[in-house]
């Protein structure tokens, strides 16, 4: 489970470390000729389509117990092992209650037969997985085995810097932490996740957006995180728009300004099927419609 550059090799040798430390040592030893493998669903499709060469070594992480499982920790944080399948995330009742954004995002990824193999860690290290906007909106932290031991890193930071850090290619993702959601008094939590694709189900995303906020009784957002991605766009937080929202009452006039802010801030990649402009407008429409719905509900409840 690391982003890997691989050299061409027809039949990779598969190694089965039992501990994260062993896996990391193997990757250090073999470098770019080896690839960590989790569910292997993305790697397999990349090999089949010629987007990535088959590596000489596969470092199979499935036998490493410490990389599995979903844990509700004493401090209220949730820790998910990167080898946890998307199916396990989707069906975990505690996670559904504590972090419904994530379980909803996972429900929208591929189909059950793929989710039974694919892992949350694999979705993350792809850097374009559809779980990422939800994880960003939950302020998630990644835990890596690095040269310096176990290191925590905000998901936001990793997504922004990973492409520029060749030394990070050998890191091993060992945990995903979802911090406890703190509640602000006299606010209502607003959650939304949308994935737009070119067909109804089991579709590659064109746009994904996630919102996690607390809307005050006075119509002012006290806390909000908005993330957007989709397709080959690395998801990212839209922090300028978040700041704008927390400065302004949530009403219609300000939503027009928010819409323009979203158009300016989100910079998706286009492709032959959907242009960058289409994706930008779709994301802005989705986000603003959720903000409008939240404001409308608040007005109706007053």
């Amino acid at each position: 489970m690391g982003a890997n550059r691989q050299s061409l090799h027809a039949e990779p040798l598969v190694r089965h470390p039992q501990h994260a430390e062993e896996a990391w040592q193997m990757k250090r030893l073999w470098g770019a000729t080896a690839s960590y493998t989790a569910g292997g669903t993305l790697l397999r499709t990349q090999w089949e389509s010629g987007l990535a060469p088959v590596p000489a070594y596969l470092i199979d992480l499935s036998g490493i117990a410490e990389l599995h499982g979903i844990h509700d920790e004493a401090d209220g944080n949730w820790r998910i092992g990167p080898m946890t399948t998307l199916t396990s995330c989707r069906s975990h009742l505690g996670l559904q209650t504590a972090h419904p954004l994530l379980t909803e995002a996972v429900r929208n990824i591929a189909a059950p037969s793929v989710r039974n193999l694919a892992t949350l860690g694999g979705n993350i290290v792809s850097a374009v997985g559809d779980a990422l906007p939800a994880l960003l909106a939950c302020n998630s932290v990644l835990q890596w085995r690095t040269e310096q031991g176990i290191t925590d890193q905000a998901l936001t930071e990793w997504l922004e810097a990973e492409q520029l850090q060749s030394a990070w290619k050998e890191r091993l993702l060992v945990g995903i932490q979802l911090p406890r959601q703190t509640s602000i008094s006299q606010t209502k939590r607003i959650l939304a996740y949308h994935k737009v694709g070119r067909r109804e189900a089991f579709t590659p995303s064109v746009v994904t957006v996630a919102i996690n906020g607390q809307l005050g009784d006075d119509g002012i957002w006290r806390d909000i995180r908005i993330a957007a991605g989709g397709g080959q766009t690395r998801p990212r937080r839209l922090e300028h728009t978040e700041a704008l929202l927390m400065e302004n009452p949530s009403n219609s006039p300000s939503l027009a300004v928010v819409y323009q802010s979203l158009l300016a801030e989100f910079k998706p990649k286009g492709d032959s099927f959907a242009s960058a402009d289409y994706r930008r407008r779709t994301a802005a429409n989705l986000i603003v419609s959720e903000l409008w719905k939240a404001a409308k509900r608040l007005t109706e409840e007053r």
Binding site: T41, R44, N116
Partner: peptide, 12 residues
């Protein structure tokens, strides 16, 4: 559990 046999590798 249903699995795509085209994706699963022998060792898995």
């Amino acid at each position: 559990a249903p699995i795509n046999a085209c994706l699963a590798m022998a060792y898995q």
